[in-house]
Design a protein around this nucleic acid. Structure first.
Lengths: 99, 99, 99, 99
DNA sequence: CCGTAATTAACAAAAC
DNA sequence: GTTTTGTTAATTACGG
């Protein structure tokens, strides 16, 4: 059982106190660190959405774009020949991949 | 169908043609920008997981930690509404919501 | 390595040999029995989803519904413990658990 | 907003009452139907586990067995030539698939 | 604004 | 017991 689980400790008058100090600041620190990173994550999501919107504005199909990216992500050979899938889709769209 | 589909015509002045008529580099750029941000997002997810693990190592209960963070994310009114709805359902079923 | 690997010997009286020495039908039988049950399981999942949808159509909040069911599944002591831990964390962070 | 959401309705003195009656029995019915199906689902999971155990007792490797089943499930051609994968694994195990 | 569909996170089960 | 994997639920994003 965890040492911070109040059901297992009874030597302290405050269940959020660990040996040598109050656990509340520690808890607060963990929570805030996580919240900070979560915010950054959301910001990145917003950025990504923005780029999809921009691509859409440039005439690309967002759904297809997502598929291309998903396939590239899953392709086991992506590190060997990372360009090939994009070229494939360029050809499928009638775009010269060499241009 | 995407407007970049060459079957829909290529003489139009719209997004079908980028400067110089080469859409592939534009597509490639969008894909790479998105992939870059997606990588950063994944890295943040990993960081968050790490912090939860660290908190667990410090004796905190991860599941409860997630709950508190979720409560903080919600605005108080919304949380109160959810709570009261839960109590309502519990009463309808004859459950003590505090068990 | 599986004991059905023929490289481990075939003259033994153990599970390697079924009646008549034909393991393939036995394997096939296991696979098919499992697949059959797995299908039934999926069907039940679909049924459950359907009921949630029906409840939603009757004005119930699905998320809350899931919560009540989860509470009923837990034994009361365990639920009470989770609740008190949550309150503890909330107090440490200066949150009113009832918002 | 849902008609059973207490925040949207004010014509009833009891938020769990819908037009023409008390909603509690309806709620209870939904909950019980779901719980019933969930129980059946768990029972099936137990059955499946049992069969894996039985297969193991017959000398089959459970992990490999799971893989065979997973692949069969994902195989898009499974309806056309459902037997082929099993035969493949029989051969890999040195078992005559025609026996 | 709502319902649907895709992604992502939480949970449960299994392997080590 | 812990770590990983597979399944299931919740969130989020897109289209109507």
């Amino acid at each position: 059982m965890s040492s911070r689980d109040p059901s297992s400790g009874s030597e302290s008058p405050d269940a959020l106190s660990s040996v040598g100090g109050n656990a509340a600041p520690v808890l607060r620190s963990f929570v805030e660190r996580i919240e900070r990173l979560a915010e950054e994550k959301q910001a990145l999501s917003a950025d990504i959405r923005e780029i999809f919107a921009e691509a859409k504005g440039n005439g690309f199909d967002v759904k297809t774009l997502r598929k291309v990216i998903a396939i590239r992500r899953l392709d086991p050979a992506e590190h060997a020949e990372q360009e090939s899938l994009l070229e494939l889709y360029c050809r499928a769209l009638g775009i010269d991949p060499l241009s």
